[in-house]
Design a protein around this nucleic acid. Structure first.
Length: 293
DNA sequence: CGCATCCCCTGCCTGC
DNA sequence: TGCAGGCAGGGGATGC
């Protein structure tokens, strides 16, 4: 599910609920998510204050007072929700009652102050691990991750360097986390439509010195930044059941121009094309053949 | 090197 | 209604 905007939305929700508070207890409801959970995971996380929550690519980084970092990836279907211990009009006996867990609530963090942060993940493609902060950049899962597209803002010259000589499609190149980190299937499709570029065009073709290449990478850099910022502002996209940690669904899915819109009219002004679906690297690509060249 | 294919897992939607 | 098949926002391994 989650791409950069959804992970960023989750980060903001978790920061409100967890930063400055202590994780008093961790409950693991199963021994594995995508991978077996480390034997010392609970010991290293319990009784630790969460100093700061950052995001790197599609990873959440919960920086603990010990110097350890709790790293979480949401995979395709992972989400966090916060159950607040806040005000309630119920009688005290009911107020104290702990809400029941839902299906696929795999990890529960009981925070100082009484709130609970719950990780739910039906497909279990997500995972968590703890790493020493000083070694995080060299961790096998983190090393080699490409650059963040928003900090600093992606520039056309950077795209020229990243795609120089690439004999792969723009779609595949943009999905490659080792080049740019955080884009997924939705936002790649959306960015290419906004930039007027065909997903099947060779990535290397926008690296050159020619007029087309220079204009194309200029448009693409802006399109990537804009679509990510627009989506973050909307609280991400809520397909199926995604919602931010505050429980509110995002609404950017209403702003999709091509994703999951096969057969619809191209929304670009003055374009009378139709959105098509093709398959690239085994995944759906949505685009308008008429205005994306 | 780049690509397609398959896999992990569950749920939902479609068509029969 | 039930069932089979296809599909899903990610990412990694494998083989060509």
């Amino acid at each position: 599910m989650p791409e950069l905007p959804e992970v960023e939305t989750t980060r903001r929700g978790l920061a409100l609920a967890m930063e400055g508070r202590s994780i008093q207890r961790v409950v693991l409801n199963r021994p594995d998510l995508r991978f077996p959970i480390q034997a010392d995971f609970v010991r290293r996380v319990e009784n630790q204050t969460v100093d700061k929550i950052d995001r790197r690519a599609k990873y959440l980084l919960l920086r603990l007072a010990s110097g350890d970092v709790l790293v979480a990836h949401l995979g395709m279907s992972g989400s966090f929700r916060v159950e607040s211990a806040g005000a309630s009009h119920e009688p005290a006996t009911l107020y104290r009652e702990i809400p029941r867990l839902a299906a696929h609530d795999h990890v529960v963090f009981e925070m100082s102050g009484g709130s609970r942060v719950i990780y739910n993940d039906p497909r279990r493609f997500g995972f968590m691990f703890v790493a020493h902060g000083a070694e995080l950049d060299r961790h096998p899962r983190m090393a080699g991750i490409g650059l963040e597209p928003l900090e600093p803002p992606l520039e056309a010259d950077t795209l020229a360097r990243l795609f120089d000589g690439a004999q792969t499609s723009l779609k595949a190149a943009l999905l490659d986390q080792k080049r740019i980190a955080g884009l997924g299937n939705i936002y790649v499709c959306e960015a290419l439509h906004r930039a007027g570029l065909s997903p099947t065009r060779l990535a290397g073709a926008i690296s050159g010195a020619g007029q087309f290449a220079r204009a194309a990478r200029g448009r693409l850099a802006i399109a990537i930044r804009d679509v990510l910022l627009d989506a973050i502002e909307a609280g991400g996209s809520s397909l199926r059941d995604f919602s931010g940690a505050d429980g509110k669904p995002g609404y950017f899915q209403h702003s999709f121009r091509v994703y999951d819109r096969e057969g619809a009219a191209c929304p670009k002004r003055g374009c009378n094309g139709t959105i098509e679906r093709i398959v690239q690297s085994g995944r759906s690509t949505f685009f308008c053949r008429s205005c994306q060249r």
